[in-house]
C-alpha cells in the first residue's frame, strides 16, 4: 500500500501490487499490439511500426498501419478493456465469481438483436446497432423483472439465467430461419471476431469507455464497501440501491457496445477479473487491473487466432476454448475453497 499526500490535505492510496500489474499489463498489451500491427501479408519490424505510428514511414506504410491494422488493434484493446471492466462490475454486483454477462443473458440479448438483422437482411452497421440495442433492451428487461425493492444479487442471477435460456432458444430458431450463407455469417458474428474492423467499429465503444470509466472509478470505493454486505455498506453511508443501478447501467452499456464492435466474444468478462485478482493479490474488486488484463487477453487471443492455425480463426473460438478450460478449473478450485 502506497500513500501519497499533498500539503493541501489531499491524499491518494494505491495498492502497490495492483499498480505494478496495471503498468506491466499495459506495457505488455502495447508490445503485443506493436507485434500485431507488424504481422500480416506485408510484414513490418517493430521498429518500423513504431516509426510509422509516430508519423514516419512511407505513405503505403502509413496506410497499412493507420487504416488497416491499427483499427483492429484498437478495437481489440477497447473490447477487452470494456469486457474486463463489465465482468468485474457484474461479479461484484452478484457477489459470485461466475457472474459474468455471458452467463446472465446480456450477451444472448445482443446476439438476438444481431440475428434479427441477419434474418430480415441488413448491413453491418444495422447489425452492430441491433446488437447494441438487443443488449441494452435485455439489460433493462432483466433489471425490471428482478427489481423488487432494489436488485439483489441472487435474483439478478436467476432471472438472468432464465432470460438467457429463453433467448438461446430464440437465437437457435432465428438461426434456422436464415439462408445457409447468411447463417454462416451469423455464426461467425456470434462467435466474436475482430476481422476487418475499421475505425467506425471502434468509435462508439471508445466513446462509451470515455464516459463510463470515470463513472465506474468514482463508484469504485463504494463498490468495495458493498463487499461487506448490503447492511454494512448502508451503515457506512453507501446508497446501495442507487449504486447498483448506476453500475448495472454502465456495465450493460459496455457489454452491448463491445458486442456491437466485435460480436459476443465469450469468457473475457469472466476470466479477466479473476486473473487480475490473482495477479494483484488484492482483496475484492479491482476495476482497472481487470480492464488491463481484459485488453491483454483479447490482443493475445487475437494473435493466437491468426497465427496458430493454418486458417484464420475468429478470436471468439480461442477465448471460448481457453475460457471454457479456465472455467472448469475454476469450478473445481472454487468448490474446494467452498465459495461455490
Amino acid at each position: 500500500m502506497i500513500v501519497i499526500r499533498t500539503p493541501g490535505g489531499f491524499s491518494l492510496r494505491v495498492h502497490a501490487r495492483a499498480l505494478t500489474v496495471g503498468a506491466v499489463g499495459t506495457l505488455l498489451a502495447l508490445a503485443v499490439g506493436v507485434l500485431a500491427v507488424g504481422h500480416g501479408d506485408y510484414p513490418m519490424s517493430p521498429a518500423d511500426v513504431l516509426r510509422t505510428l509516430t508519423g514516419g514511414g512511407s505513405a503505403a506504410e502509413q496506410f497499412i498501419v493507420v487504416e488497416l491494422r491499427l483499427p483492429r488493434l484498437v478495437t481489440a484493446l477497447a473490447v477487452g478493456a470494456a469486457l474486463g471492466l463489465a465482468g468485474a462490475v457484474f461479479q461484484a454486483l452478484v457477489r459470485n465469481p461466475l457472474g459474468s454477462p455471458d452467463v446472465l443473458g446480456f450477451t444472448q440479448g445482443a446476439a438476438t438483436g444481431a440475428l434479427l438483422v441477419v434474418v430480415v437482411g441488413g448491413g453491418s452497421t444495422a447489425l452492430a446497432g441491433a446488437a447494441a440495442a438487443g443488449g441494452v433492451v435485455t439489460g433493462l428487461l432483466i433489471y425490471l423483472v428482478a427489481w423488487r425493492r432494489g436488485v439483489h444479487g441472487y435474483r439478478l442471477v436467476l432471472v438472468g439465467i432464465g432470460v438467457s435460456a429463453i433467448l438461446t432458444g430464440v437465437n437457435g430458431y432465428l438461426l434456422t430461419r436464415a439462408p445457409l450463407m447468411e447463417a454462416a455469417r451469423a455464426m461467425l458474428w456470434l462467435t466474436g471476431s475482430l476481422d476487418g474492423r475499421g475505425w467506425s467499429d471502434a468509435g462508439p465503444l471508445l466513446v462509451a469507455l470515455a464516459v463510463t470509466v470515470p463513472v465506474l472509478l468514482a463508484c469504485g470505493p463504494a463498490l468495495r464497501m458493498t463487499e461487506l454486505g448490503d447492511d454494512a455498506a448502508s451503515g457506512l453511508g453507501v446508497p446501495v440501491a442507487r449504486l447498483r443501478m448506476v453500475l448495472l447501467a454502465a456495465a450493460v452499456l459496455l457489454v452491448s457496445l463491445s458486442a456491437a464492435a466485435a460480436g459476443p466474444v465469450s469468457f473475457v468478462a469472466l476470466t479477466a477479473p479473476h486473473l487480475a485478482r490473482r495477479l494483484t493479490r488484492a482483496p475484492g474488486t479491482n476495476l482497472l487491473p481487470a480492464a488491463v488484463v481484459g485488453a491483454l487477453i483479447l490482443v493475445v487471443a487475437d494473435q493466437m487466432a491468426q497465427r496458430i492455425f493454418p486458417q484464420q480463426l475468429p478470436v471468439g473460438v480461442v477465448t471460448g476454448v481457453l475460457g471454457g478450460g479456465y472455467l472448469v478449473w475454476l469450478l473445481a478450485t472454487e468448490r474446494r475453497a467452498g465459495r461455490l
Binding site: 447492511d231 454494512a232 448502508s234 451503515g235 453511508g237 493479490r281 482483496p283 465459495r339
Partner: peptide
Amino acid sequence: ARAVARTLGLLPQSPTAPDGI
C-alpha cells in the same frame, strides 16, 4: 447517506468479509 454515516454507525448481524482481506 454519508452524513448519516458520520453520526450513526451500524454493525449488522452477519457482515461478510471479502476473501483474502
